[in-house]
Simulated scan of single mutants.
Amino acid sequence: MEQTRFTPDLDLDGLSSDEAFGILGNEIRLDIIRVLWRAGAAYEYDDGSDAVETVSYSELQSEIDIDDNGKFNYHLSKLAPHFVRRTDDGYRLSSAGKQIARTVIAVSGAESLDFSRELDESCPLCGAAVAVTYEDQWLRVRCTECYGLFGDQAPVGTLFLTNYPAAGLTTRDSEQALAAGLYRCALDITYLMYGICCECAGQISSSVTACDVHEVENGLPCDSCGTPFPVWADMKCDTCGFAKRLPVEMFATGLVLATELTGNPELDIDSPALDEAIELLQNSVETSVSTKPLRVSLAIEVETTEFTLTLDDEMNIVEFDREPRTDTVVS
């Protein structure tokens, strides 16, 4: 079968992606990872510590409930050394094994979540009712009446859309989930803008497309490009395929929000709210496009600070400055 972006031609530490899928495509091997994870058989911390628990061969075999020594040893050996490590004291998960376990835990429980409801707020675009839904690990906020922010690039009415692990919703209400979702999006975008994949640390390839005849009237998307925004960017990891396609303004404001949130200890994870983020996008961002070569320049005002950002046709940051706003008074 021809390779796709989901199975790149890689050979990391002697293990290709196809081989990794093959190793993990077995119930017994996944059960071994599950037992080691539940037993805490891994390095306790992900950096700076040698503290580690292990499970003995006999205890692990008993938990897996396989009497055939040859069969059990065969499957255990397939997991080593990439997902399971053998030590003098027993067996533990490798870093990759921990990542597999964490992924399973993060996506578990989605079918039992009922997160669909109308929110106690109105659409910042038209004032109509706003609803939130959760489906296929995606958290979506939509207006019940207008086109939303994305035109034909997303389901009608979409105001916010993000991949969201099910485990992250079990202890949060809708407002807390949206705040965390915005924060995660801003950090994802920041990684992408600096050429790093937040999923696998791979390199990012990017491109920019601009609508030459962009025209928006009465809040409707442009007839030519089908969206309210004239410039869009595609950013995709060359290794694992993690990708986002968004208006350039959203990439820029995401970077600015992350810069503000991580640079100001007085801000907490509950800021900004969705309506504040949309208001920032609509009223506090000025965008200009020049050609030969293509440059997208943005000026973004946030509270007492003005950010200026210039991007090229591959979303490289040509300029990024921040200055105190001269039109605000600090009491």
Rank of each mutant, 00 (worst) to 15 (best):
A106F: 05
E145I: 13
C123F: 12
D88H: 08
F72K: 04
I100C: 02
L159T: 01
G109I: 05
L113H: 06
A101Y: 05
V130N: 01
A129P: 02
E135P: 00
L139S: 11
A110P: 02
S122T: 15
A101M: 05
V156R: 13
D136H: 13
H75L: 05
V156M: 07
K71R: 15
A106G: 05
N73M: 03
K98R: 14
S108N: 08
S108T: 07
A129F: 07
L125Q: 00
P124T: 11
V130C: 03
F115W: 14
L93M: 10
A101E: 01
I105N: 01
V156Q: 12
L79F: 08
L159H: 04
S122L: 14
H82F: 15
L119F: 15
K71N: 12
H75Q: 15
R86M: 09
D67L: 04
G157T: 05
A106W: 04
F160Q: 00
F72M: 03
F150D: 00
E111T: 10
L113E: 04
W138M: 10
A154Q: 11
E135Q: 13
Q153S: 10
V141L: 14
G109M: 04
K78D: 09
A96H: 02
S77A: 13
A101G: 09
P155E: 12
I100M: 03
D136S: 13
G97K: 01
A110K: 11
T133V: 12
L93G: 02
A131L: 07
V104C: 07
V104K: 00
E145Y: 10
R140M: 15
A131M: 07
Y147E: 15
G90W: 01
A131C: 06
C146T: 08
G70H: 10
V107K: 14
Y147I: 10
N73W: 00
N73D: 05
A96E: 05
L113K: 07
T103G: 07
L79E: 04
V84W: 00
N73I: 01
Y147V: 12
T162Y: 03
V156P: 02
P124I: 08
E118W: 04
D88P: 03
D89E: 12
A131S: 14
S116G: 10
T158C: 08
S95W: 06
V141Y: 14
R140S: 15
L159F: 02
Y74D: 11
Y147N: 11
F115D: 07
A110W: 09
K98G: 08
S94T: 15
L139V: 10
V156A: 09
V156F: 12
C126K: 03
P81C: 09
V104L: 11
T87R: 07
R92T: 02
L76C: 11
N69Q: 13
C123L: 07
W138Y: 08
S108D: 11
K98P: 02
